[in-house]
Amino acid sequence: MSGVLRRLSAGGIVGLAILVFWVAMALFGSVVAPHEAGAIVDMEVFLPVSAQFPFGTDYLGRDMFSRVLHGTRYTVGVALIAALIASGSGLLLGMCAAVWGGWVDGIISRTLDTLISIPSKMFALVVVAAFGSSVPVLILMAGVIYTPGAYRIARSLAVTVNAQDFVTVARARGEGTLYLVREEILPNILGPVLADFGLRFVYIVLLLAGMSFLGLGVQPPNADWGSLVRENMAGLHEGAPAVLMPAFAIASLTIGVNLAIDVLSGGRRSGEAG
């Protein structure tokens, strides 16, 4: 742990702080928000930023700051669960494919390759057209869409580790599959898999925000950040903070995660000399 802390760059600290803040808001946002999500607090719509309304007011005169905090669970919470599903099943399937190989690997890989040949937004639109856009559908859909990518990463990492001599030695000793996966393979691929989990989380946040922006994501009266941008589009021509603030919230979250991943993967991915 001290090693991780020593490596922390300024960017990494900022990224981690943003991430921790938004996860806390996903859990407690509705408690700390100054107003109810639906409460109309002012007759003036699209008010600019002020001390009273830090993010201004929306098209109905509701407090944007409160609405963003209330919306955190739909953006961060939903994406977090979906990313857990994607990375979790990708990791599990990837390790199965790597350890068992042969036809197991063949079937899993071919099936997921088919999924990957459908662009993610297209898949999302088709699913929403067929099943509607309730929160469970959105979570499951995003989880399924990003499983193949997580699977590819986990499988290739696990195949590399599986071919190493220490795994062969354990196998020759007669160790069971569960031991091989848990003690020999998993600890050696966990770092990159975690970094990939972060990336997947970012993709899912962006996908779901995009869907909400099209009116095909989280449905009213609930609102995630993408929906907040959509419902306030009328204020765009005045440059109202009601449009910009939720969008900035998304940007801060995704950039924060990217910065935090750099810390996880142990250093400067970009800008290294050589």
Partner: peptide, 26 residues
């Protein structure tokens, strides 16, 4: 491998070329 008894497996052991990949770094 799967058909051999633990006693049979115990009696034959492997030592590999590259100590770098032969030991679990974790």
């Amino acid at each position: 491998l799967a058909q051999r008894t633990p006693a049979q497996l115990r009696r034959i052991q492997l030592v590999f070329q590259s100590a770098d990949t032969a030991l679990n770094p974790r």
